[in-house]
Design a protein around this nucleic acid. Sequence first.
DNA 1: ACGATTATTGCGTTCTT
DNA 2: AAGAAAACAATAATCGT
Length: 307
Amino acid sequence: MTTSEPYERAFDEDIQRGTTEPCPECGGPVRTNSAETVCADCGLIIDEQSIDRGPEWHRDDADTAKRTGAPLTPARHDRGLSTVIGSGQDATGTDLSGQKRRRLARMRREQSRARWRSKQERNLGHGLTEIRRIASALGLADSVRDQACQLFRTAQNERLLKGRSIEAMAAASVFGACRCNGESWLIDDVAPMAQVGQNRVENAYTVLNEELGLPTPPVSLDQFVPRLASDLGCTDVVRRRAEELVVQAVDAGITTGVHPSGFAAACLYMAACVHDAPLTQADAAAAAGVTVETIRSHRDRLLSIVE
DNA sequence: ACGATTATTGCGTTCTT
DNA sequence: AAGAAAACAATAATCGT
């Protein structure tokens, strides 16, 4: 790994740095993805990766890590290195006079005008702002968000923005980053956050995927169960039973071409029935964004293979 | 008895292959 | 283009209060 790719390296470390201690609740193994650290046994969310775990950004070698200034972030068009002129107070925190305030305001204005060196850079800033907005709306981990930003940069460098809107490509980048990280978001989850139509986003993502050859693992069904389970407030036993059902269904090969979150919801519903948990078809369907009939039909198919 | 939930069936639409 | 899947609708049956 060379220092010419500090961002990618930072991502990898960020993902791998997660807790490896056994689960404090049940002592089971923990599983860390880019969004959270969860116990594989009881589903306890140990860490949501939202805290600053002291990233060692600028370091000369692995041992002498030190914090020097703000972290470089791909989420800003200038990687967060631009100077921001403050206002109102001086370095010691005392208020400034009106005259000095006015001078600072003028400096700030002129600097912000000078910040965009080119049209392209302005577009980049626009796109990254959009990505930050969508990512925070979805509650994505910073590492995923940063990958989305990186993806957007690449797309722009490859001239993929020509004829497409920045907003669409920004949303597509977010979705692409999710897919690359095995995040269980569907395009239907991301697209509503965008300020353009869903088909624009889909188009942008298609281009992104084809031109860049994104390493997107196929959507795995089991990713959907934990999210739905927590949305529906299912117990751990139910969730685990549902996960078993998913595995059996995949093995039986009846999961091709089905709405993944709908199927996961059906597994959850059936698991809830087995354990006499109070989960109605309507609730399961609503959480998955499908109708009760879908839940029912999948439930029946599950019954036919579970014998 | 009543409302809520679940089952059953048919049919036009949307999506996958 | 063909076939499967999901949605929609109408109606019946079941269950708990």
